[in-house]
Computed example of a mutant assay.
Amino acid sequence: MAGKDYLHDVQECEKKPLWQRIGWLLVIWTGSVATLAVFAWLIRLFMTAAGMKTH
């Protein structure tokens, strides 16, 4: 039954230390923000190359 497996996974996850769970949250958040920054920089680079400038 899938419900039992899910409950077991949640209980196993809760056994990990809080600092480790928060650490993973920070790693994932930092990675997503960095990816967004690179993507925005690339868009700006291509727009500048196409002749679109803000001034």
Rank of each mutant, 00 (worst) to 15 (best):
M1C: 09
M1V: 09
M1D: 10
A2H: 05
A2I: 15
G3S: 13
G3F: 13
G3Y: 07
K4N: 06
K4V: 14
D5W: 08
D5G: 12
D5K: 14
Y6R: 14
L7W: 06
L7M: 05
L7S: 06
H8A: 14
H8G: 04
H8M: 07
H8V: 14
H8K: 13
D9Y: 05
V10S: 03
V10T: 08
Q11H: 08
Q11V: 15
Q11I: 15
Q11P: 05
E12Q: 15
E12Y: 07
E12G: 11
E12W: 05
C13P: 00
C13E: 07
E14S: 10
E14R: 12
E14L: 15
E14M: 15
K16C: 07
K16D: 10
K16V: 07
P17V: 07
P17T: 12
L18W: 01
L18A: 09
L18P: 04
L18M: 08
L18H: 02
L18F: 05
L18Y: 07
L18C: 08
W19A: 15
W19M: 09
W19N: 10
Q20D: 13
Q20A: 14
Q20S: 12
Q20N: 09
R21T: 04
R21W: 08
R21Q: 12
R21A: 06
R21M: 10
R21N: 01
I22S: 03
I22V: 15
I22L: 11
I22T: 14
I22K: 08
I22Y: 03
G23Y: 11
L25R: 06
L25V: 10
L25G: 13
L26N: 03
L26P: 04
L26M: 10
V27P: 03
V27T: 14
I28L: 12
I28D: 07
I28V: 15
I28C: 09
W29K: 09
W29V: 14
W29H: 11
W29A: 15
T30L: 14
T30P: 01
T30K: 09
T30E: 08
G31P: 00
S32Y: 08
S32L: 13
S32G: 01
S32M: 09
V33A: 11
V33Y: 04
V33G: 01
A34E: 05
A34M: 13
T35W: 06
T35I: 10
T35G: 11
T35L: 12
L36W: 05
A37E: 00
A37H: 02
A37Q: 02
V38M: 03
F39N: 03
F39C: 04
F39T: 10
F39W: 12
A40P: 01
A40I: 10
W41V: 15
W41N: 11
L42A: 04
L42N: 04
L42W: 03
I43V: 13
I43M: 04
R44S: 02
L45E: 03
L45P: 00
F46M: 09
F46Y: 08
F46N: 04
F46G: 02
F46E: 03
M47F: 09
M47W: 09
M47G: 09
T48H: 00
A49C: 04
A49S: 05
A50P: 00
G51Y: 02
G51Q: 00
G51N: 02
G51A: 03
M52C: 06
M52A: 08
M52I: 12
M52P: 00
K53M: 04
K53A: 07
K53C: 00
K53S: 12
K53H: 11
T54G: 06
T54R: 04
T54A: 02
T54N: 05
T54E: 07
T54C: 01
H55N: 11
H55C: 01
